[in-house]
């Protein structure tokens, strides 16, 4: 499963359309976003609610709470599946590296939590699901 905010993060540098609750639409390239869905677009065009007024701006910051929806290019969905696999692989490598480190220095360290190595990350810890 793909989380909406992960999809948005993967869509960085892609063009997108954002409609706000006040009816304005912004077309631009996503520079960055955060966990509140606040977004930073560059080279944006703002279209008014009636569709009759246009404004071009080099960049714009939009509060997440005012967003109604975002339209993103279809190819981003393909990219995000690869990124999810990559993140999971990195987490596996991290936990493996940590386990090896603990085992190596293990004698002196007082009881590191061993066993119960449930993989971290992902809501509900659903493994094996693509």
């Amino acid at each position: 499963m793909v989380l909406p905010l992960s999809l948005l993060r993967t869509a960085q540098n892609h063009p997108m359309l954002v409609e706000l609750k006040n009816g304005e639409t912004y077309n631009g390239h996503l520079v960055s976003c955060d966990s509140w869905m606040n977004i930073h677009l560059r080279d944006a065009i703002c279209t008014s609610r009636d569709g009759d007024r246009f404004q071009k701006m080099p960049e714009v910051y939009v509060r997440g709470s005012t967003i109604k929806y975002l339209r993103i290019p279809d190819e981003v969905v393909e990219m995000v599946k690869d990124e999810v696999k990559e993140v999971r692989r990195q987490q596996k490598d991290n936990t493996r590296a940590k386990k090896n480190f603990q085992r190596g220095a293990g004698g002196n360290v007082g009881g590191p939590p061993r066993g119960g190595g449930a993989p971290r990350g992902g809501r509900g810890g659903q493994r094996g699901r693509k």
């Binding site: 706000l20 006040n22 404004q55 071009k56 701006m57 910051y61 709470s65 005012t66």
Partner: peptide, 12 residues
């Protein structure tokens, strides 16, 4: 209360 911030110059 802020919804949008943009630089004023560069707006056409």
């Amino acid at each position: 209360a802020i919804t949008v911030v943009a630089p004023n110059d560069g707006i056409e």
